[in-house]
Design a protein around this nucleic acid. Structure first.
Length: 826
RNA sequence: GCCCUCGUAGCCCAAUGGCAGAGGCAAGCGGCUUAAACCCGCUCCAGUAUGGGUUCGAGUCCCAUCGAGGGCACCA
């Protein structure tokens, strides 16, 4: 370190030295501890999404945690007792993959990475409360996953069913609907196929309405984009169920439709080829072999093929007929894959004239198209385009002449009266499949007994601890590795005492993150998942910060769990996160950083080269937090220069500590108070880049005052430079702390408190008013801020250059916006 | 195909319907220096993607087009 020249040491502090100097001090003083009993400050819960410990922190973490820290540190400066916790979302596939690929123990691998990340977060000076750390792979944590599961089981919200599930052949495990993106596995991008399996589900569909309706609380506080995505995902559809008799079947079949008004236009009937109903109807049909061949073909197709909307319609006529309840017409029944088995009832009435999908099918199979609604558009028979808009009913007996909406009302009533139909609601949202055939997760606390069936593990026996991985084959093979842990899996039934087996699957890791924000309020409690009194103190989370990648999955599940906990009487809020900020990604030259692309920028290298403060500041200053940051546009060197410039100010101030700023230069004080006010507004509205710009203005103002203004001894200069330190403490904690010390204060600057902005200093005595003639600026006049509109108009019209410009021209109108502007219209 | 967001100096970005510039990067000039770097100061640079409209006044509001990004997409 002897290479550092004395000169550079004078001009800027060495980041590595600042780090060594201040980290132990901060460890000791723990300025962000939030659990003190005697703390009288109002509480505020600021939460960053916790990381998965896949290695050391990367650029994305650096950005996310810098942004979260701005908010957390700001509210501390504003006098709040801020809870800003951190933990690790440490169950999941990468640990297992590391184990398979490199022979590592998943547990060792995970906990080593946590230690690495933890050290990096400390160095990165994140304002976390280190007393509240949680790790989801600790039995002390996942015990409560099991507890929640059993509570839900008790309430009928956790259940097992056999169904065609999403299967990733590469990961060799089932996936939730939410984990299938465009027919591909979200994790490994391999095509997802269907497999019939018995799996555990959580009944999130019971909460569909609340998940939808409670979003009203979040409008304006969450990004509109996220709310839209959640609404789309749940997708509530309001319609009616209608009973159709099937010839040769004792029971009628119910279909779901949003368009009961078009009932008279039904010309055929379709059942989902992979539904039980289709199999049943085909069984007694002459078309059985054709049906079976078609079914096989459909099963083979991957989701990605099935999702292609421009695919030609396929299907098989089952040689069976349904009867239209309103007119007794016989409708041929087809099996097709364009009808989904798990939506509605898996069967539909087809109205080709007014539904494009039905029309496509009708044209492929030469089925009749009957128009029952006059929309004023051309005949679908000729155009091939179904008419779906509003209009007047025709060819529909008692409905003729009614408009669409009235017809829907009337036919629904008529059907209800005849017990042929009923209003109904459907959702795109499906129940949440939580079983996973993998090792590194929370064991499902159920014992399967040949006589008693499913038996929940008694609460006092929790946690069901995951067995050690030694001796287990973790390679994906379609069944859980836990099944092979004989000592673990073989138990006696808690009910009858006979030999029984544990459920060998583990839970989806999204279970872990669905309630971790509640655990933080009392992370070490061993008698309940969280302390209910503490939860009432802290919930809801005032500010949540994280990536938009979790817009559907995590946020939907967390909202669901919150409502369940509410129903269990454990908390008094129905929504967990009051405000949400989605930060953008860090990219390089327009595309995501990755090793394979060769554009990976290593965080540790950048930190070594420029220092933590410069990187944090550069991240925050790069642009609006919601936008992606292109590292190619970021200048850590520029940030470093600015920080040195700010730091130098602290050595120039000669006014004594504690001097009354009121005796200082008023003009500089006005600048200081205005900028600190504007910076506060900027932070609260997520315009952190603007807040950084304010700190630069503040530094420029102080520099100028010291060099060519009121001089370094003026109390106003001290006030200004101290404000710089306080504002910078949000972005550049080391530099700010060092400045604070050089200004004669004791640590920590983080607790110094925001400048008490004097409103008197925010209002100017006089202001420059712009005088326009027809929108073009002609003159500027200095006027008192409280000037009346009439006085200002007179003053403007009397202005020399205005008089000159106007000449003899007649003034049509004068717009006066006192005291800022006068517009003379000619 | 449908829906949403965004197009401002060479670049990143600011601007409650009221003077297009807060701030930075890059560039140029000057001061400091034996010299260079650092530092200090100054300067240059767009009429706001395009075309209409509303308004006394539009980057900002409305419509259309182009371009970029994102979401949804057989859910009856």
């Amino acid at each position: 370190m002897s290479t550092a020249e004395p000169q550079t040491q004078v001009n800027s502090p060495d980041p590595a030295q600042l780090q060594e100097k201040w980290l132990p001090v901060w460890d000791d003083l723990a300025p962000f501890r939030s659990g003190r009993k005697d703390d009288m400050r109002p509480r505020k819960y600021v939460l960053d999404m916790f990381p998965y410990p896949s290695g050391d922190l990367h650029m994305g973490h650096a950005e996310a945690y810098a942004l979260g820290d701005v908010l957390a540190r700001y509210w501390v400066q504003k006098g709040f007792n801020v809870m800003h916790p951190i933990g690790w979302d440490s169950f999941g596939l990468p640990a297992e993959n590391a184990a398979i690929k490199r022979g590592l123990n998943p547990k060792t691998w995970t906990y080593e990475n946590i230690a690495i990340q933890r050290a990096s977060m400390r160095r990165y000076a994140c304002s976390f409360d280190w007393d509240r750390v949680l790790v989801t792979s600790d039995p002390e944590y996942y015990k409560w996953n099991q507890w929640f599961f059993l509570k839900m089981y008790e309430k009928g919200l956790a259940y097992r069913k056999a169904s065609a599930v999403n299967w990733c052949s590469d990961c060799q495990t089932v996936l939730a609907n939410e984990q299938v993106v465009a027919g591909l596995c979200e994790r490994c991008d391999s095509p997802v196929t269907k497999k019939k399996l018995t799996q555990w589900y959580l009944k999130i569909t019971d909460y569909a309405d609340r998940l939808l309706d409670d979003m009203d609380q979040l409008v304006g506080a969450w990004p509109e984009k996220v709310l839209t995505m959640q609404r789309n995902w749940i997708s509530r559809s309001v319609g009616a169920e209608v009973k159709f008799e099937i010839i040769g079947r004792p029971e009628p079949v119910v279909v779901y439709t949003t368009r009961p008004d078009t009932l008279y236009g039904a010309t055929f009937f379709v059942v989902a080829v992979d539904s039980d109903l289709a199999t049943e109807l085909a069984a007694k049909s002459t078309a059985l072999s054709e049906f079976n061949a078609y079914l096989e073909e459909v099963k083979k197709a991957s989701d990605i093929e099935r999702l292609a909307t421009d695919r030609p319609k396929t299907g098989v006529f089952l040689n069976r007929f349904a009867i239209n309840p309103v007119n007794g017409e016989q409708l041929p029944i087809y099996a097709s894959d364009y009808v989904l088995a798990d939506y509605g009832t898996g069967a539909i009435m087809a109205v080709p004239a007014h539904d494009q999908r039905d029309l496509d099918f009708a044209r492929t199979f030469n089925l009749p198209v009957k128009v029952v609604l006059d929309t004023g558009e051309p005949d679908p028979n000729e155009t091939g385009i179904a008419t779906v808009g509003p209009g007047t009913l025709i060819n529909s007996a008692e409905l003729n002449g009614l408009v669409k909406d009235d017809a829907i009302g009337k036919i629904t009533e008529t059907l209800a009266a005849k017990k042929l139909g009923t209003p109904a609601v459907n959702y795109r949202l499906r129940d949440w499949l939580i079983s996973r055939q993998r090792y590194w997760g929370t064991p499902i606390p159920i014992i399967h007994c040949s006589t008693c069936g499913e038996v929940p593990v008694p609460a006092e026996q929790l946690p069901v601890v995951l067995p050690e991985s030694e001796g287990l084959d973790l390679t994906p093979k379609g069944t859980s590795p836990l099944g092979a842990a004989a000592d673990w899996v073989n138990v006696v039934c808690p009910k009858c005492g006979e030999p029984a087996k544990r459920d060998a699957d583990t839970m989806d890791t999204f279970m872990d993150s669905s309630w971790y924000f509640l655990r933080y309020v009392s992370p070490n409690l061993d008698t309940a998942p969280f302390d209910e009194a503490e939860a009432k103190n802290w919930m809801p989370v005032a500010q949540y910060v994280g990536g938009v990648t979790h817009a559907i999955l995590h946020l939907l599940y967390a909202r669901f769990f919150t409502k369940v906990a509410y129903d269990l009487g454990m908390i008094n809020v129905t929504e967990p996160f009051s405000r949400l900020l989605n930060q953008g990604m860090v990219v390089m030259n327009g595309s995501a950083m990755s090793k394979s692309r060769g554009n990976l920028v290593k965080l540790t290298d950048e930190l070594t080269e420029h220092g933590v403060d410069a990187i944090r500041l550069a991240m925050v200053f790069a642009g609006p937090p919601e936008d992606d940051v292109d590292w190619a546009d970021v200048s850590p060197a520029g940030s470093k220069k600015f920080l040195a410039r700010a730091w130098r100010l602290s050595g120039d101030v000669t006014a004594k500590v504690g001097v009354d700023p009121k005796t200082g230069d008023v003009e500089l004080r006005k600048v200081t108070h205005r900028l600190m006010h504007e910076a506060a507004v900027a932070v609260e509205t997520y315009r952190f880049n603007v807040a950084v710009a304010k700190s630069m203005e503040l530094v420029n103002a102080a520099r100028k005052a010291i060099d060519t203004g009121c001089g370094p001894a003026d109390p106003a200069v001290r006030e200004c430079v101290e404000s710089v330190a306080i504002l910078l403490s949000l972005f550049a904690p080391y530099t700010a702390e060092e400045m604070w010390e050089r200004l004669g204060h004791k640590p920590c600057v983080a607790l110094a408190g925001w400048l008490d902005v004097d409103p008197q200093l925010l209002v100017a005595q006089s202001i420059v008013c712009v005088v326009q003639i027809s929108g073009k600026v002609k003159a500027r006049i200095e006027v008192p801020v409280d000037i009346s509109a009439a006085d200002l108009e007179q003053l403007a019209l009397a202005d020399e250059s205005v008089v000159k410009a106007l000449g003899d021209i007649k003034v049509k109108q004068v717009i006066v916006v006192a005291p800022k502007l006068v517009n003379i219209v000619i």
